[in-house]
Design a binder for these strands. Structure first.
Length: 490
RNA sequence: CGGGGUGUGGCGCAGUCCGGUAGCGUACUUGCAUGGGGUGCAAGGGGUCGUGGGUUCAAAUCCCGCCACCCCGACCA
């Protein structure tokens, strides 16, 4: 049917590229590594934003906006931070163009060189902490709980639509606290917000955990993350929440007087999710016919397709459908009546499947006679003919059922592709098949790096819920107290 | 940065080896038929062949340079 999309079995990577393009989620732009997010892709992002924004506000945060540019000197104030980001920064050196004296368009005006270069933010810790210095004087100014919706630029060598683009959209929360404990609680609170959002809204089961030192955010003392499994068994980091300690407070001299009049450095967190989540959504659920969207983020949740030959038939269908659609809209459902006369029903069926509309309802002359409609579920491909009486009232429950079903399917997939490995042979043979591997690790960066070199697998996280268990490192044989999750990752 | 590939109507491609008036599919426009899984027939519009130079009577095609993008790898919250 959707022969435009390479089947997953044949080439998972090609399938993903084809799907993003054919479903019109995004496309490559004229700028290398940067994508154009098309209306369908952007609408999904808007639903994600709306839900996350509500959750941020419910947990006491407010939004603000900081500059796109960061003075170069700011970036180097925190040693680990600059080390981590320096290699992928876009730099603004001039502020003016002029006509080429040779008549070939415009050139950079050499007289317009900036005294200090500006970095296009790869993340905003530095500019934000420089600002916080002036906002924080007293313990009464804390906690400071701010989120920013923004774009950032990281000059990656290799890009993939949504998963890793040079410019991407995200939110970054930056909070300041009076105590270490409070900042640690905030870090975990936001991790929980992300995990709940991923599972309830995106239907993507995630594992909450802590990153190893190798994978830690540049400038963080501890990085918490949620890790998701894609349909090819590879891991995708879906969100991170960092406990930054006093690193940025010290780098930017952000201090406050506590109740006893003692000057202290404040404690920090930062946390973020990005348009990468759209990639996660696609790779977690979709199939060879196209996108499969959880109803919670589907721009169109229900589409109604009329089937008719003559105008009189269409009029009769219209009468029935208008009533039905009005009821759905009344209960807040995003429904579209696709009565476009220039497309055939078969074309529409394929199109709406490609675009991931969760529920499709077809109604034709046969249905008018019988008082029925055909209802088709995008996620399971199930179709059935049901009576139209009372159907509108049942739709919210059906959508909820789809939402649940998509989550459970993804959860089942993850469970079926998660294995314990106790020997190196087991470990490598499971890796070939793909999936998460729970294995013992001796806790050293050397071992982790060697495993990565030999197998390309990395430690995705040390799960928060990992039970204590005596064991021996899969690689070095040294003692270990719990299993960690290994996988190949995006 | 290494390896591979591609630049030709909106999109996808053929044509390049072997130089000779730019073609196919799709999309678009119009008409008629059709309509329960990407509809059929007919007509029509649309292209500086990535770019700069060279060879030639003649270049999408041959030669040299440049640019861009994609894929694989190294790299990467």
């Amino acid at each position: 049917m959707a022969e435009k999309i390479t089947p997953r079995e044949k080439d998972y990577s090609e399938w993903y590229n084809d799907l993003v393009k054919e479903a019109q989620l995004a496309e490559h732009s004229a700028v290398k590594g940067c994508m154009v997010i098309r209306p369908l892709g952007y609408a999904i992002w808007e639903f994600m934003q709306a839900d996350l924004d509500r959750r941020f506000k419910e947990t006491g945060h407010v939004n603000a906006y900081f500059p796109l540019f960061v003075p170069k000197s700011f970036l180097s104030k925190e040693a680990a931070h600059v080390e981590g980001f320096a290699k992928e920064c876009a730099v603004v050196t001039h502020y003016r163009l002029k006509n080429d004296p040779n008549g070939k368009g415009v050139i950079v005006d050499p007289d317009a060189k900036l005294d200090e270069e500006l970095i296009i933010r790869p993340t905003s810790e530095t500019i934000i902490w420089n600002t916080y210095r002036n906002w924080i004087q007293s313990y009464r100014d804390l906690p400071l709980l701010i989120n920013q919706w923004a774009n950032v630029v990281r000059w990656e060598m290799r890009t993939r639509l949504f998963l890793r683009t040079t410019e991407f959209l995200w939110q970054e929360g930056h909070t300041a606290h009076a105590t270490k404990q409070e900042a640690e609680e905030e870090t975990k609170r936001m991790l929980d917000v992300y995990a709940d959002f991923a599972e309830k809204v995106l239907c993507i089961p995630v594992i909450k955990g802590i990153k190893t030192a190798n994978e830690r955010f540049a400038g963080a003392e501890e990085t918490y993350c949620i890790e998701a499994m894609m349909q090819d068994g590879k891991a995708l980091q879906a969100g991170t929440s960092h406990f930054l300690g006093q690193n940025f407070a010290k780098a930017f001299d952000v201090t406050f007087l506590d109740k006893t009049g003692t000057r202290e450095h404040v404690w920090a967190t930062s946390w973020g999710v990005s348009t990468r989540l759209i990639g996660a959504l696609i790779m977690a659920h979709s199939d060879d016919d196209g996108l499969i969207l959880p109803p919670a983020v589907a721009p169109t949740q229900v589409v109604v397709v009329p089937i008719y030959r003559k105008d009189e038939e269409l009029e009769k269908i219209n009468a029935v459908v208008h009533d039905f659609v009005a009821k759905l809209k009344g209960s807040g459902i995003r429904v579209k009546y696709d009565d476009d006369d220039t497309k055939k029903p078969g074309w529409k069926f394929a199109e709406h499947e490609l675009k991931g509309v969760p529920l499709r309802i077809a109604i034709g002359p046969r249905d008018l006679e019988n008082g029925t409609v055909e209802i088709a579920f995008r996620d399971t491909k199930m179709k059935q003919v049901v009576g139209i009486d009372g159907l509108a009232e049942k739709i919210p429950a059906l959508l909820e059922q789809i939402q649940q079903g998509i989550y459970l399917k993804a959860l089942k997939f993850r469970e079926e592709h998660t294995f314990n490995a106790d020997t190196w042979e087991e470990f490598t043979s499971i890796l070939d098949k793909g999936g998460f591997i729970l294995a013992h690790w001796d806790g050293t960066s050397e071992t982790e790096l060697k495993i990565k070199e030999e197998t390309k697998a990395t430690i995705r996280c040390i799960p928060l819920n990992a039970p204590n268990e005596e064991g021996k490192c899969i690689y070095s044989g040294k003692p270990s107290i719990r299993r960690v999750i290994f996988a190949k990752a995006y």
